[in-house]
Design a protein around this nucleic acid. Structure first.
Length: 495
RNA sequence: GCCGCUAUCGUCUAGGGGUUAGGACAGAUGGUUCUCAGCCAUCAAACCGGGGUUCGAAUCCCCGUAGCGGUACCA
């Protein structure tokens, strides 16, 4: 890229054992969405590229919102993507670790108890905003007298713990954004332990990053504002800092950050799995959101991604999630698969609809898949393409009927005639194979001066209800003589 | 309100002091074919604005503007 002249050089090796170590730290408050998948992927690629370690850390300090179910979903999504992790931690099991550091902070005077009530805080905030102050909390409990404390305690107030922010600027060398200086006047004395005693994100995150010897924190830019807070905490604790790399957000088509709250499971990774997307396609797609290699390559295998991934080629601006491109990649990867694999992938979708069961002839199914060819953008798309193979219970598409069967009496009569003739011809065919069927039909159209398109589309609608799909000869042969004649009869009656 | 980040075709992006500003997805048109998809060919489509610096700025600097993110006892 070359445009990040301000970017600091990355220190190659940082842990005691000389490895790169990164982590993905989701909070289990919902499914893994596209943005989370990309964060995971970037971390994982970075780790793999450097022969380092990728850690999965469940940041579940928000006990009110965290669920086991969500944790399981995140595991499933990552496994499906093929993003494997070397170690796994759950923050709720590490309370003693955090408590130790909090005591240290309290003892050293770098943190203090705050007895403000939520209502009081709300007032302070409103006032600060009205006064156009750069920060809201006025640090009023920084220096409480023992009398004050005693009073609050008798009132039954449970304190939070706040970190004392320094009055000197904090400097961040972000691997993607470059050099940043934060004015201490804007720094909030952040709550690091809730009144229920559970520490929260800014404390646990940076403590764990140090404890786990994380060398690089690669996360979304929504965390950029947390970085100085975490640096302050680490400094107060004399902890070693990781290097930070804030990757730009993944946005929806109106430019907003993708989130569970606003987009629901439309952006859930598992949803794409259910719809018949391939993990390779998802990985390839998501990798190119914010990262690029050169101006030539769009298709990257996982191995290539590992080999070529580099934080220096991650851009600074957000990228819009464009499903059309995902679909294009998905069809590319689907078409890469042989017929047997594609059949395997598609069978569950047929089964779900009750079209196929374990008794259905496998060879026949493979032939159907072969006939469908490169028409799939997702495996789920097989239903739209092939439903009529399994049932004649379908509607004739209105637009197709209007165009090829016609609405006037003469046109309908003409369609009936074609269908009748075709039916008679097919009935007489001794061996119902591709070549014979094709020859017979072409003979009919050419000798009777009927447009091939007209005859074919007229029959296609009778057989499938639609005006699109695989080669009609394939359909005829796969359906078999009896079924074809039956459907022609049915169409003639309908007309 | 306050703090911060960002800004190249509709989208993902390449480029990064002198280029016909390149590619891909999507779109349009034509060709191939029984349709659709595909494939092939072609077309349309961008440097947010204003000031500097410079012989020369999309590229460097400043100022705007806009968008987004944060502003929680969420992460």
């Amino acid at each position: 890229m070359g445009k990040n002249t301000e970017r600091t050089e990355m220190t190659e090796i940082k842990t005691e054992d000389g490895n790169v170590r990164v982590r993905m730290a989701p909070s289990p408050t919902g499914f893994l969405h596209i943005g989370g998948a990309r964060t995971a992927l970037f971390n994982w690629l970075f780790a793999k590229h450097h022969n380092g370690e990728f850690i999965l850390r469940i940041d579940d300090t928000d006990t009110a919102r965290s669920t086991d179910e969500s944790m399981q979903e995140i595991f499933d999504a990552l496994k499906w993507l093929g993003i494997n992790w070397d170690k796994q931690y759950v923050q709720s099991e590490r309370r003693n670790v955090y408590d130790k550091y909090v005591s240290q902070l309290l003892d050293s005077g770098n943190a203090y108890h705050c007895y403000c009530t939520p209502e009081e805080l709300e007032e302070i905030r409103a006032q600060a905003r009205a006064d156009k102050q750069p920060r809201s909390y006025d640090r009023r409990h920084r220096n409480l007298t023992p009398e004050d404390v005693a009073r609050f305690v008798t009132e039954g107030r449970k304190p939070t713990v706040r970190i004392k922010m320094p009055d000197t600027p904090i400097h961040v060398n972000d691997l993607i954004l470059g050099s940043l200086n934060i004015d201490p006047a804007t720094l909030e004395d952040e709550v690091i332990v809730r009144s229920n005693g559970i520490p929260n994100y800014n404390l646990t995150s940076i403590v764990d990053d140090a404890e786990m010897q994380i060398t690089h924190v690669i996360r979304g830019t929504e965390h950029l504002n947390n970085t100085p807070k975490q640096i302050a905490i680490a400094n107060a604790l004399d902890l070693k800092l990781p290097q930070f790399a804030h990757i730009p957000l993944v946005l929806d088509d109106s430019g907003r950050k993708l989130s569970k709250r606003h987009h629901g499971d439309l952006v859930a990774v598992n949803r794409y799995r259910e719809q018949g997307y391939l993990p390779e396609a998802m990985l390839n797609f998501v990798a190119r959101l914010g990262w690029s290699y050169d101006d030539k390559q769009e298709i990257f295998s996982v191995d290539e991604l590992i080999e070529k991934f580099d934080l220096a080629r991650v851009g600074k601006s957000g990228s819009v999630f464009d499903i059309k491109k995902l679909e294009w990649l998905n069809s590319h990867y689907i078409n890469q698969l042989d017929v047997a694999s594609r059949t395997d992938a598609v069978i569950p979708f047929w089964e779900q609809e009750g079209l196929v069961d374990s008794d259905t002839d496998r060879d026949w199914l493979e032939k159907i898949v072969e006939a469908v060819g490169e028409r799939l953008t997702t495996f789920q798309g097989i239903l739209l393409q092939t439903r009529y193979f399994f049932t004649d219970d379908f509607e004739y598409d209105a637009k197709a009927v209007k165009k090829w069967w016609g609405s006037s009496d003469e046109k309908k009569q003409r369609a009936r005639e074609i269908l009748t003739n075709l039916g008679q011809i097919l009935e007489k065919i001794p061996t119902f194979d591709l070549e014979t069927v094709e020859t017979a039909i072409w003979k009919y159209t050419d000798e009777n001066d009927i447009k091939r398109v007209a005859a074919m589309q007229t029959m296609r609608i009778a057989l499938t209800g639609t005006s699109f799909g695989p080669s009609l000869f394939d359909i005829v042969v796969l359906l078999g003589k009896d079924e074809v004649l039956k459907r022609i009869e049915k169409a003639i009656t309908y007309l």
